[in-house]
Amino acid sequence: METKPYKGSTLLLEIIGVLLALLFLVPFYFLVSNSFKKYGDILLDSAALPNPWTVANFTRAWDIMNFPASFMNSLVITVSTIVGLAIICSMGAYRMVRHSSKYNNILFMLFVMAMVIPFQSIMIPLIKVASWLNLTGSIPGLWFAYLGFGSSMTIFLYHGFVKSIPLEIEEAATVDGCSPYGVFWRIVFPLLKPMTVTIIILNSLWVWNDFLLPNMMLGEAQRTIPMSTYAFFGQYTKQWDLALAGLVMGVLPILAFFLTLQRHIIEGITAGSVKG
């Protein structure tokens, strides 16, 4: 196999890539390093390494945030949302693609248009409707809101991916006696794995880190990790040492989850889930 010569332009691109990577990693350096400092050391020199290193911030933040309860609330909300979006939106997108009609096309365009509506413009009507339906102050109410806000982008992504699946595969399964639901769950949905993993990652990052919607709809007993971290920022004081430690504890689970699923994305792409 002939290898291409190493050019100066390649070296320049690699240097630019390294510099961009360092630029994006700088905030993580400040987050992690300052989480191990005392409050006075953060104010004195936030860019220096901790001296001495202390884990007292993490133990105090763990207790103040009631981290196990906040973690479970965030986990339940995130998992239930991404499962609901993956199931409902994949079926909806499949129906719109395989049973194309004027009404399905109009419905799909409505979902696409809904993607550009900013949340801030509808949050007050949303809270009024949720209060009227007794959905505020509960995790199920927040789950329904997330399904509504996340369905537009999820259906849009699934819609484009379903088009790439050859119709002959489904016709062959139907001839073999597979029911319509069997065709979708046994044939189509496994072929959607690369897009499903991508959707899981995008929606997990969004739901796990979201603060505004849970803060508007949940009560004190259902606090998520972002809501618990916000408790360190008062009107007159900001406990940066505890807040940064809480942010590190909140970032680690979703970071590990992202790195784990990243491998599956690469596997799905290289395998070429659909072969025409």
Score class of each variant (00 low, 15 high):
D210I: 09
F58S: 07
I269W: 12
E220Q: 13
S179G: 05
F30E: 08
N105S: 12
V26P: 03
D63G: 05
A245T: 01
G150T: 02
L157N: 00
M72V: 14
G17D: 10
F149L: 09
L19V: 12
G234E: 05
V188Q: 03
F24H: 07
N215L: 15
Y236R: 14
F233K: 03
A69W: 01
D41K: 08
H264C: 04
T196F: 11
G148S: 02
I254R: 00
S33K: 05
L167K: 06
Y39L: 12
V97H: 08
P180H: 06
T54G: 03
A173H: 04
V175T: 14
F189H: 05
P190C: 01
Y146T: 07
I139R: 11
F211S: 10
G276S: 07
D210N: 12
T270L: 15
D63Q: 09
S35D: 03
L23K: 00
T54N: 05
S131Q: 12
V116F: 13
E267F: 08
M91L: 15
R60S: 10
G268T: 06
F67Y: 03
W240F: 15
L126Q: 09
L192S: 08
M216Y: 11
V112C: 14
G268H: 02
T224N: 00
I265G: 00
W185M: 10
I77Q: 06
F108E: 12
I199V: 14
S80R: 05
I88S: 07
L31E: 05
W240L: 15
P27V: 10
L44T: 11
R186Q: 12
E2Y: 12
N57M: 04
S74I: 14
S35H: 03
I265W: 01
L218F: 09
E171K: 08
I266G: 00
V83Y: 13
D210P: 04
A114W: 11
F30V: 12
M113L: 15
D176K: 02
L192M: 13
F149A: 02
L142H: 03
M109D: 09
